[in-house]
Design a protein around this nucleic acid. Structure first.
Lengths: 340, 340
DNA sequence: TTGTATGCGTTATCAT
DNA sequence: ATGATAACGCATACAA
């Protein structure tokens, strides 16, 4: 079943069928109806391979999600998809492995799917440097800065990770914590990890303290690693009264680890998260966390992308606001520990 | 850049390039090397649209995941993908919305991508009835039974949901609970919900109790709904001493809700989960839950699929074992409540 | 408004 | 072992 068959059954040429299927302009209402009737009757679906093979440019937007289990992205995806649909742009979702080369995949997409633009959720700066050359359409990177990369059609929007981490750790310091452990900042997403680490350091140094390397536990961003890292940290540094986890999933893992060490959260050890994913609202205790504004990021990200698609302007690199969401996982340190 | 260009640069015909790119049989080692050199030098990637347009059959396997946030599937996907790769089958992942018609998507896939087989993770029986006709390759459905559907090339493998639910509720009854609430079993995945509900009923009736409709709270399978459903349940039935949540994410939501109602888990109210996702091991308290054997399901599912791809035999419909994983979210009911 | 014809980049068929 | 060429199913330029 091809448009040829449909054309035959509807008594018209293939071009007419094609026109009806794509917007249907320059077609009389009568033939349009006749064609659509046949299409429905035959349950015909055009072949996208042939379509994209021939098509020079698609109107849709590709959304590349790197890390399907990243809860922060789940929020972003949903919002972005809805917004794009509102603006008449079909959003094609692609989930990539965390380790995959997102930019290379995007380049392939440009060759084969020819989207009007691409929205990146996550992705390593390194991949962009290496493979973004093949990407020919306007792009926006969410949750990462592409300022330093200098590509003419790549904008970016990210939370100011350094400042957010600064405030997170300052919040702990304000409550009297002095022995603070840090979880996260391993190899992947290293750019983000570095920013957050820098914020930590700045907050500590502002109080005359220093970021003790022995109290930083690099790890991947999942619960299992958060759990393991927290155990390592507490075994090595039992004097720690507060933990800053660079992601909520790490915080969840850490809370479970502390529980297994018979340490109560927040009475014995406080835990501060990062991201503000919905899971943070369901943990026991509820997480105190840096809440990234996914709603605004999705909205502004889509806006930037569509603007660049319309008129090829300069790329922009912005930061999105955040707020400190108070849960129940942070308290003042206990007296006996405070005195250590 | 097309294979035509590659052919020209390598001084051979397009057919030779194509042969080199696909397994490279019937090509002299010398020309093979020459072609590959040019391909590497030009960073050439064949166009998949054209490839699939022409190709009559692919050797890869499509994996359709319905519900990207379903944690049970996350485990299954990872295992299945690894196993397929081991067996020399490239696994192409497709994440679908929970509400999407998975079978219709699969039919489209058969027309356009022509995979050797399809592995379904989730999906509603209704969609299969309506749209599976267009699916022409061997398929295996995981986490659902397709026995009743009667398709010749659709096998299935699922946990015996009724029996598992029976044992879960029996476990609660064994510990002295009599006032048991049930969360889950709404519209989507209704087949699964019905099975589990049936198991609940059977367990209760085996002790001369009955499944009180007023104590069942239908809801979707996410934390927010679990939270809301648990609150509704406890407000309407404060005498409840144990809750059976038909999914771990519901259980997590329920535990949070109970906390907000100043009810301790498990001292005041016990919570039993279902699925055995990794998240269950990180909750506070750790979930007591029915643990589906994702490892076996992935292994056996892939095995069944590859067998059907090799030799078109009869479809099989099996159940996978499960086990009750004891956490810390279930205890005996308190005396004062027990007597109500 | 409509139909005809060409080509998208690849695989598959058939020669050689 | 290799090359020429005909599809694959569609969009599109152009003719009518």
């Amino acid at each position: 079943m091809t448009i040829k068959d449909i054309a035959r059954l509807a008594g018209c040429g293939v071009a007419t069928v094609s026109r009806v299927l794509n917007g249907g302009r320059d077609v009389s209402e009568e033939t349009r109806k006749r064609v659509l009737a046949v299409v429905a009757e035959q349950d015909f679906h055009p072949n996208n391979n042939a379509r994209h093979l021939k098509q020079r440019q698609d109107t849709g937007v590709a959304v590349l999600v790197q890390g399907s289990q990243n809860l922060l992205f789940a929020d972003l995806v949903e919002r972005a998809q809805a917004l794009l649909r509102e603006r008449g742009r079909q959003a094609e979702l692609y989930y990539l492995d965390e380790a995959a080369d997102g930019a290379a995949f995007a380049a392939q997409l440009c060759r084969e799917r020819k989207p009007a633009g691409i929205l990146f959720l996550g992705g390593a700066a390194w991949d962009f440097q290496r493979s973004f050359a093949g990407v020919t359409v306007p792009c926006v990177l969410l949750t990462g800065s592409a300022r330093g990369l200098g590509f003419a059609h790549l904008s970016s929007l990210t939370t100011d990770d350094e400042e957010a981490a600064f405030q997170a750790v300052s919040y702990l310091l304000d409550r009297g914590h002095r022995e603070i452990g840090v979880l996260g900042g391993g190899q992947p997403l290293s750019q983000i990890g570095r920013q957050r680490l820098r914020g930590c350091r700045r907050a500590l140094e502002a109080r005359g303290l220093s970021l003790d390397e022995g109290r930083t536990e690099p790890c991947r961003y999942d619960m299992a690693d958060g759990y393991a890292a927290a155990r390592r940290l507490m075994e090595r540094c039992p004097e720690v009264t507060a933990v800053f986890a660079m992601s909520d999933v790490l915080a969840i893992g850490a809370i479970r680890a502390l529980g297994d060490l018979n340490l109560r959260v927040p009475e014995d050890v406080s835990v501060m998260g990062y991201d503000g994913v919905f899971l943070a609202r369901y943990s026991v205790p509820r997480l105190t966390t840096v809440c990234q504004d996914t709603d605004l990021m999705a909205r502004r990200g889509v806006e930037l992308l569509l603007a660049q698609i319309r008129e090829e302007g300069e790329p922009v690199h912005e930061t999105a606001p955040f707020r400190l969401l108070e849960g129940a996982s942070v308290a003042r340190p206990r007296e006996e520990k405070k005195g250590v």
